[in-house]
Amino acid sequence: MSEEQFQKRIDNEEKIEPKDWMPDNYRKHLIRQISQHAHSEVIGMQPEGNWITRAPSLRSKMILLAKIQDEAGHGLYLYSACETLGVSREQLVQQLHDKKAKYSSIFNYPTLNWADMGAIGWLVDGAAIVNQVSLQRTSYGPYSRGMVRICKEESFHQRQGYEIMATMAAGTPEQKQMAQDALNRIWWPSIMMFGPHDADSPRSGKALKWKIKRETNDELRQRFIDKTVQQTEIIGLTIPDPHLKWNEERGHYDYGKIDWDEFWNVVKGNGPCNKQRLDHHKKAHSEGEWVRNAAIAYQKKIELLTS
């Protein structure tokens, strides 16, 4: 097969499957994108995991646990999809540890009060949903099917977060203050999740041509902002953007300038929690090595016995 024939398949909305021919760069791009998506799910367990033991009610504790469990599951679906491209889970984890692979920089921020659980579910999962709904139509079969599964599970995540924010915003003065504080800290990093502006996004062109990505960063970002403003107003909180204004002509909300210096700083490794998140992951991994070795040793013994 040639690149032209491959492109024709893409243009025809055909799904590319693991054993199909694909350009090297298509494979490489997918490995990078899918693995970074997977790493994000897994690292994302940490900021939320930070509040599990302190969850303030049985119900909220169970819901948070179920949500984080889903994130782990999403990580697994995505690692599975990525492995179909010819890379192993161990290699992917090694890339994460060596900082060769990235994860969503939103998870490099700390979770400082219980309302952060609300803000993360509502905004971070909310932003992820906008992105993921779009990705359901991605050209690579296993990734697309993974995304369909993930999207089904994701909507409860956002509702869980929004419910926490609504409850706190309508609660005691301290609760409302915590909710507004969480919104103040998490709003801008959430809209940065969609990546640089289209004009500054070099890989987007190829990604769109190959239908790995179906919409641009700015299109998705705008969609998210438009949806969220109304939700914020309903619960009586304020988005920390004085330039946020409905533009009748465009039919969208205008919003203020994103601080890209902060974004790139965090991406480069200077965020509040970059070191902590990676150290935590490495520690769990290395502390678990004796366990994994034991399981493999046991497996070998069984195989010897049954051979």
């Binding site: 599975s80 994994r292 399981a295 493999i296």
Partner: peptide
């Protein structure tokens, strides 16, 4: 680093 485990 431990070996790869099987995929099922």
């Amino acid at each position: 680093m431990s070996e790869n485990t099987d995929v099922w």
